[in-house]
């Protein structure tokens, strides 16, 4: 249909633990257009990472996608077997994780592991593979790439390692890159370098990007569209500047108000009371209601998504123009 690159519909990912069913992702739907940069924000436990992992079928038992569909250009990913998924991973959709020290293999040189990634999808000579690797490393801003191929991950700084991880994700010119908190572990000056390069790369190659982060400021300067998640649900989505300047959902509003950057120095911050709910027993209705100042009796029933132009939100008492 509509030519959307990635369509996620009513995704439910649950973890069946001894303590009960953890409803990590609970009916998430969104789409991603070609070349679009989508920011996915939320706090710990909001389901943003599990959503990213579910797209690529990376959920291990006791976790399971219990319902919903993930379609890449019409191809249903949730029903693919391991071999089918293998052909998609790294080729059409690739992933960048938070900690490059954990994702790079410490006993293989950068060149060797990049070669493995190239050969996972193509029959190619060692020499051509290494040339490709060097070319991609140059694109992500690693100087003297050809000589750095023989270096090991520990010989790189954190920022350089994350560039290598991004380079590996770019090897096959994927249609989508899912990046999970890729700059969280980095210093701000290095983060700025990476953000700059990622945005240029996405624009040059037309790759769509799902940027998962807890940092609203980073996402706001990078993404075209924003999805805010809370307790496994999408509570608000829309063009990034519109959502952040005029939020509809009280949770989005609360997040913005609790940022020190949005207050005068020394001023008491408007805080969201309480804690995120346990995903083991979510409230029947709106999961944010116990922390929400606008909550009323109607919030005991789950609010449906309200659409308005490019924006949508899930709230009985939205703020702003929609109220």
């Amino acid at each position: 249909m509509s030519g959307m690159l990635l369509e996620i519909e009513n995704l439910h990912t649950h973890f069946l633990t001894r303590a009960g069913v953890v409803q990590a992702v609970n009916g998430v739907s969104f789409t991603l257009a070609r070349g679009e940069i989508l920011g996915l924000v939320g706090e710990s436990g909001s389901g943003k990472t599990v959503t990213g992992f579910s797209i690529l079928g990376l959920i291990d038992p006791p976790g399971r996608i219990v319902e919903g569909s993930v379609r890449l250009d019409g191809l249903e990913l949730t029903s693919l077997d391991q071999e089918g998924l293998r052909q998609v991973r790294g080729k059409r959709i690739s992933m960048v994780f938070q900690d490059p020290m954990m994702t790079l293999n410490p006993v293989l040189s950068i060149g060797e592991q990049m070669l493995l990634a190239v050969r996972a999808h193509e029959r190619i000579t060692r020499r051509a593979g290494l040339e490709r690797a060097a070319a991609v490393l140059t694109r992500v801003g690693i100087p003297e790439a050809a000589t750095r191929l023989s270096a090991y991950p520990h010989q790189f700084s954190g920022g350089m390692r994350q560039r290598v991880a991004i380079a590996i994700a770019l090897l096959h010119r994927p249609e989508v890159i899912i990046a999970d908190e890729p700059t969280t572990a980095l210093d701000v000056s290095i983060q700025a370098q990476i953000l700059h390069e990622v945005r240029e790369l996405a624009r040059e190659s037309g790759t769509a990007l799902i940027w998962i982060s807890h940092d609203l400021a980073t996402v706001s300067s990078l993404a075209d569209r924003l999805i805010v998640m809370y307790a496994g649900r999408v509570v608000e989505q829309g063009p990034v500047a519109e959502v952040l300047s005029d939020p509809r959902h009280p949770y989005t509003d609360g997040l913005l108000a609790s940022l020190p950057a949005n207050a005068r120095p020394g001023e008491v911050l408007r805080q969201i009371p309480g804690n995120t709910p346990s995903l083991l027993d979510l409230p029947e209705g709106c999961a944010f209601a116990p922390r929400c100042a606008r909550a009323s009796t109607i919030c005991a029933t789950a609010p449906q998504l309200t659409h308005s132009g490019p924006r949508s939100w899930r709230c009985h008492h939205p703020l702003g123009a929609g109220a």
Binding site: A192, H196, S245
Partner: peptide, 24 residues
């Protein structure tokens, strides 16, 4: 350092320039 801190963008069409420090 202060320039490289991302700021919250709330105006449509704002293009953020990431100002970076050369090297590490």
């Amino acid at each position: 350092l202060l320039d490289s801190v991302p700021r919250l963008v709330t105006r449509t069409g704002t293009r953020v320039e990431f100002r970076t420090i050369a090297g590490e």
